[in-house]
Amino acid sequence: MANIKLTNINKSYGSHHIIKDVSLDIKSGEFIVFVGPSGCGKSTLLRSISGLDQVSSGTMEIDNAVVNDVPPSKRGIAMVFQSYALYPHMSVFENIGFALENQGLPRAEIKKKVEAVGEMLQLTTYLTRLPKALSGGQRQRVAIGRAIVRGAKVFLFDEPLSNLDAALRVQMRMEIAKLKRDLPNTTMVYVTHDQVEAMTMADRIVVLQAGRVMQVGTPMELYENPNSVFVAGFIGSPKMNFITGKPADKLKAKTIGVRPEHFEFSKTATDISGTLDYTEVLGSDSFLYVSTPTGMLTVREPGRTQYKTGQKLHLKPIAEHVHRFGPDDNRL
């Protein structure tokens, strides 16, 4: 059991201020996801927690102890890298057992623990193989096995699925979710730029932009009550529509945001009218791309659509689902 507490964390590389005054409270046993566009500082923040990078200022606490000056190996953390970082010249067994070896455990105990982890991750038959003789998913499991075997209190994942193909990614997503269930006391911090991963796995999501925390909350909180244009646009797929001008003025906002599924069609002309440019039919849903004076809008319709390309459409946002944002892009 370990909680993680970040207080006013800053991190600079020379004159580049990468992490800007981040404060976070991660509860014990929580699965928390850092999400944000590439280069926003997610990895840097994760590495600061791990101790691989030193923070420039602020306090980092793990399990209620300040760890600013504690080296990675003494922080009780385990980390799964995007590249897996398996030792290419060591067998799967040695890879998983390396950390135990460093703790000076006796051979027999290492063997017992590694085999137990191997069983848990269905790696038993591969223990003698070198990493290069494994498939992508198996390598991923070895990387996770290395984290599990040490019994670390905190797991850190840095985009662990981004090297896998789409199908495998879905499968591994489920496996990590299962892992979370099996290790309910382990705090997990997971970094991704993929909001779908964030939505599906997280207990809570931390949205980062340019080194700042934009919003923290459960997936549904972020979806339903994004506190800024950035968060609103980042969470949800397809993206939320942002409308400025007269429809926004009417609601006394600089910008209003409407998710694609929150439009109704009107027979009569509305504030938001346009022509249907293009349709994507997915079977379960259809996405209509409507070009209007305020820009291209995406509209989701369940099932098939009866509208034809080139047709004039009149759109009306469902009132209770309209998000209003002020001139500073924050929620009103």
Binding site: D69, V70, P71, S73, K74, Q103, G104
Partner: peptide, 17 residues
């Protein structure tokens, strides 16, 4: 660095480094 006392282990690790 494997000293039981965590604080001294951390200090020793830093000295080692």
């Amino acid at each position: 660095a494997n000293a039981n006392n965590d604080a001294s282990a951390v200090r020793n690790l830093r000295i080692q480094a």
